[in-house]
Design a protein around this nucleic acid. Structure first.
Lengths: 340, 340
DNA sequence: TTTCAACATGAAAACGTTTTCATTAAGTTA
DNA sequence: TAACTTAATGAAAACGTTTTCATGTTGAAA
């Protein structure tokens, strides 16, 4: 790798001058600038980001961390794409960490990121009381929480109105005549799981119905738990007539179980999922789902992060996107035993 | 951040000793070790990976680059998961770069990675003659190519037998009686597109059939091109009776167009996709697809990279996984105009 | 005792930048 | 012409490590 000294030698100046040409061109004579630029080009010099980072820490090393719970979930993939697009334009790189809903893994990655002297962090904390992330916020590192907030610490956050989204989904089902509506939740400690449950309960209350606790199941937010818990629900003496699944992967698991048993959707069981995918329409049947704008959320989080890196004292903001119900045919017809 | 000097002061030793306790404990007296360990723990000291990287370059900074064409493609997500799992166990971090099939973007990211002094790189080059990647290989950086090889340079590569996979898919269709089999290819410059086309042609030859060039379409490997090119095929005076899609996203695009036109699968058109997804069974109809073991490929690539980092002179290897056809119902029945 | 090896430790250099401070040359004012 | 800005540049320190080299201490062999 060619370095500053090589360029300096080639241009017949000191390394300080070369550095100035790069970072503060106005402070150097036009003719010298020419010479140096020439040398830089002919040697194809690229500064070492590592040395830059070591020397001047805090906000100008153009690398950030992105820590997410589950890369297998298409929603987070959209978030990544949004963040990445915004980063690319500014010449930033992201160290991507997928902690797979595992707190130990999250901690390790956060340690690594700190030790890498990142400029900032976009993170979906394992749960609301994530001490490690909280401490990093307090230490002054620019941090944007995405998808899930942090309780007890002031931090920027970008998320969706989960309660509203769940409320709309359940209301839709109730209006179609369903009363035995099951909910398969993701990990109960995740803030989004709680908010979606709250929306579920609020809808029942709104329509004067009573929640049947036996129809609420808690999984680990993954495909397998969707399969397993759907089976449990179908095995009940009186199975639910509708199912609300707490995320993407649970939905796919539920579909798999339902199909494998030959149960008909929506005739025998209606299905609404949290998290839409652009190919939801190609599922069997086309899935009714609550859509989170993951890409836009990622972009927004990146913008907020840039702002905070530039001005660490800016007051924190909370950006709440709408979660819109996409109605397709997976809960199209009224349930058999519907009571309007 | 606490640093070496802080620990040294607390333990009453020099920074050299602290460093030795960390990197070569046997070389320091047991009692001193105790003192130092104690200080490290009580100060919660974590070495700066940036400083480590600057000081001792080449193979022990525990960071690698992962450069992939399209994070929206579930196949690459599997690859990422495989790589990540292997990395995690060894305390490595990965800088993830998604170049979205864009060569400029790839180049920028590769520059950044070089400038970050990564230990190694796992990459799916934009095309077979990717000069930038080739140069990095020649410069001695440990590199593993995944999904696509590099022509003209010796480099490790992990991929699938794409030609065989396509051959099997087309043979399956031919045996079902199809003759007008369309192929929607991804970007033609991508090695996998070429290999899959070769498999397509080989199958036609094997069964003594003639390839109809008008049934071969080239897209950009994304969802939209799948939609658009499928529409073109369905608009033909004599549409194909079967469709072979070149990757994941094309398949989903094709499904969307086919459904939107109310064309029946497999009665009116049979469908086989390259790339399986764990939820392919929940598509409408359950998709017949060629499966690539992305997770295993990612793991293997990571292992090969570790080996190469340890021993840069190890001879290069080519690991070829099988691509297995998963038969489901999307091409279940024989075509209407079948001639056995 | 004297001489050596073995061990334990510290001082200092190096990695590639950025930035402060000092120095020189040139131009301006009185 | 003398005194003083201003502009342009270089020398050197600093960032936090690892590692080489030198130094001192201890115990064993002669």
């Amino acid at each position: 790798m060619t370095k500053l000294t090589d360029v300096a030698k080639a241009a017949g100046v000191s390394i300080a001058t070369v550095s100035r040409v790069l970072n503060n061109p106005d402070s150097v004579n036009a003719a010298t600038q020419q010479k140096v630029q020439q040398a830089i080009r002919s040697l194809n010099y690229k500064p070492s980001r590592v040395a830059q980072r070591l020397r001047s820490k805090g906000g100008n090393s153009k690398i950030i961390g992105l820590v997410l719970p589950d890369i297998q979930n298409p929603f987070y993939v959209d978030v990544i794409r949004g963040v990445e697009e915004a980063m690319y334009e500014k010449g930033y790189a992201a160290i991507m960490c997928n902690f797979a809903q595992n707190e130990d893994k999250e901690r390790l990655y956060l340690d690594i990121l700190q030790s890498e002297s990142i400029d900032g962090l976009i993170v979906a904390p394992v749960h609301g009381r994530d001490q490690k992330v909280a401490n990093m916020v307090l230490s002054g590192l620019p941090i944007i929480c995405i998808d899930r907030g942090l309780t007890g610490v002031e931090a920027d956050v970008v998320l969706v109105d989960n309660q509203q989204g769940a409320f709309d989904a359940i209301s839709h089902l109730i209006k179609l005549g369903h009363q035995r509506i099951a909910y398969i939740s993701g990990l109960p400690q995740i803030p989004t799981s709680k908010a979606r449950l709250a929306g579920y309960e609020a809808a029942f209350k709104e329509y004067g119905l009573k929640v049947d606790e036996s129809l609420i199941k808690y999984g680990d937010s993954k495909h397998e738990s969707g399969m397993r818990l759907t089976a449990e629900l179908l095995n009940l003496p009186t199975p639910p007539t509708a199912l609300f699944t707490g995320n993407n992967l649970i939905t796919l698991g539920a579909l798999e179980t339902i199909h494998s048993r030959g149960v008909k959707i929506p005739e025998e069981i209606a299905l609404v999922g949290f998290d839409d995918m652009y190919w939801s329409i190609s599922l069997n049947p086309p899935l009714t789902a609550v859509r989170q704008p993951g890409f836009e959320m990622g972009q927004r989080a990146a913008e907020l992060l840039f702002q905070r890196i530039k001005d660490p004292s800016r007051p924190t903001v909370k950006v709440v996107f709408d979660a819109a119900l996409q109605v397709r045919s997976s809960c199209g017809a009224a349930a058999k035993n519907a009571k309007p």
